[in-house]
C-alpha cells in the first residue's frame, strides 16, 4: 500500500487564519482542500510538507451564490460535483459546469474542489511517477534534479497546465478572491498563472482562493471540449474553453482558452482578434479554429503523441465553437470536417 508521509494537520477557523498558518512556514506548509491532487503527490513524494492546513470545511469557501452585477460566485471549497450539477451554472455558464463535470471521475469530483482545481499542479509524465521511478530515471528540474528530461537543453520546466476549469474561468473573464493573513485581494484568473511548469501560480503560496467570481451577462454562451483517450478518469491532453457574445449574427466578443498545451492555460489571442466583429458562420468558425491552434505546441510529456495532440487542438476548438452556439449551415453544398 502506497502511504502518505508524516505530517501534522491543522484546521483553521477562517481563510485568514489558514493563510496565516501557511505564512508561518510557507516552505513546509500546504493548503489542503479535497486532497485529490495533493495526496497522490505526497504519496509519490513529489511534494513534501510538515503541515497540512485544511480549508475544505470553511464556510467562507462554501456555496454558489449570486455575486455583484449578475455574476455568479463559486466558493473555492465547492466540490466539482456540486459545481457540475449546479442549476445556475448549468443554465447561465454551461461551459463552466461542463468543465467541472469533465474533471477526472465521478468519485473524485465528489472530493475535488474548485479552488483545488484552479491551483492544481502542472503535469508531466516524467514527473507524475513514484519516488523510485523518478530516482531511476534521474530526477528532473521540477523536483530534486538539474535538467529537464523532455527538453534536455532547456533551462525551464515544460510541465503542462492540466486544469479543466481554469481555461474556462479565464475565457469567462473570471476573477478570484484571494485571502491572505491581512485581507483580501482580487485577481483576474488570467493573471493567476505563470508560464512556468514549476512556479506555475502567480499568487503567494499562503493565499487562499476563497471565491471565483464569474461574470454572467445575459446571452453569454460558453462551451468546453476536452480531449482525452478514455471517457473518464483522464486529465485533459488538449482542451478548448470558449466564451462568446453574439449580437444577432455578429460576434461581439469571443474568447478561446486552451488547456493542456502549455505550462499555463493558453489564450488564443489571434483567433479572438479574428473572430471579434465577424459574422458567426461556418467559414469564420473554421478559420477561428485554425488560428486558435497556431500557438499550441504540445511536448512529448503527456498521453498521446504530441503530433496527434497538436493536430487535435484545432478539432477541439472547432467543436467547442460549435457547441457554444449553433453555426448556420453554409449556403453552398459541401461538407466541413474533412481535412
Amino acid at each position: 500500500m502506497l502511504r502518505l508521509p508524516r505530517f501534522s494537520y491543522r484546521r483553521p477557523a477562517s481563510a485568514r487564519e489558514a493563510a496565516a498558518m501557511v505564512a508561518e512556514d510557507p516552505e513546509q506548509t500546504l493548503l489542503l482542500a479535497g486532497g485529490t491532487d495533493l495526496l497522490p503527490k505526497l504519496k509519490r513524494r513529489q511534494l513534501a510538507a510538515r503541515v497540512l492546513v485544511d480549508v475544505r470545511h470553511l464556510a467562507e469557501l462554501a456555496g454558489i451564490r449570486p455575486g455583484p452585477a449578475g455574476a455568479v460566485e463559486v466558493g473555492g471549497g465547492v466540490t466539482l460535483a456540486a459545481a457540475a450539477g449546479d442549476r445556475t451554472l448549468v443554465g447561465a455558464l454551461p461551459g463552466y459546469a461542463t468543465a467541472a463535470g469533465q474533471v477526472s471521475s465521478p468519485p473524485l469530483r465528489e472530493a475535488g474542489t474548485i479552488g483545488g482545481n484552479l491551483c492544481v499542479d502542472t503535469r508531466c509524465n516524467y514527473y507524475d511517477m513514484g519516488e523510485e521511478w523518478r530516482r531511476a530515471i534521474g530526477y528532473c528540474l521540477k523536483k530534486d534534479g538539474v535538467q529537464c528530461l523532455v527538453a534536455p537543453g532547456s533551462s525551464r520546466c515544460w510541465a503542462v497546465s492540466s486544469s479543466d476549469t481554469a481555461p474556462m474561468a479565464i475565457a469567462l473573464q473570471g476573477v478570484v478572491v484571494l485571502v491572505g493573513p491581512d485581507g483580501e485581494r482580487e485577481l483576474p484568473v488570467a493573471d493567476l498563472y505563470r508560464d512556468d511548469g514549476i512556479d506555475y501560480l502567480a499568487k503567494r503560496p499562503h493565499e487562499v482562493v476563497a471565491r471565483l467570481r464569474l461574470p454572467a451577462p445575459p446571452g453569454r454562451r460558453s462551451a468546453y471540449v476536452k480531449l482525452r483517450r478514455r471517457g473518464s478518469i483522464d486529465f485533459p491532453i488538449a482542451g478548448a474553453a470558449v466564451a462568446l457574445d453574439l449580437d444577432g449574427p455578429a460576434i461581439v466578443s469571443a474568447r478561446i482558452v486552451l488547456s493542456a498545451v502549455g505550462s499555463s492555460p493558453v489564450e488564443a489571442v489571434a483567433a479572438e482578434a479574428f473572430l471579434t466583429g465577424r459574422r458567426w458562420d461556418e467559414e469564420t468558425v473554421l478559420e477561428g479554429a485554425r488560428l486558435a491552434a497556431g500557438p499550441a505546441k504540445p511536448l512529448d510529456n503527456a498521453d498521446g503523441s504530441h503530433f496527434w495532440r497538436k493536430r487535435m487542438v484545432r478539432v477541439v476548438v472547432e467543436q467547442a465553437l460549435r457547441a457554444a452556439a449553433p453555426v448556420p449551415a453554409v449556403s453552398v453544398a459541401g461538407t466541413a470536417g474533412a481535412t
Binding site: N125, G130, A136, I137, R229, R230, S232, I233, D234, F235
Partner: peptide, 20 residues
C-alpha cells in the same frame, strides 16, 4: 523509455472505463 517502464501507473496505462 530511457531504460524504464514509461508509465507504471493505472492512470497512464489506459484501461477502458464503462463509458468506453
Amino acid at each position: 523509455r530511457k531504460g524504464l517502464h514509461k508509465w507504471p501507473s493505472m492512470l497512464e496505462y489506459k484501461s477502458l472505463t464503462a463509458l468506453d
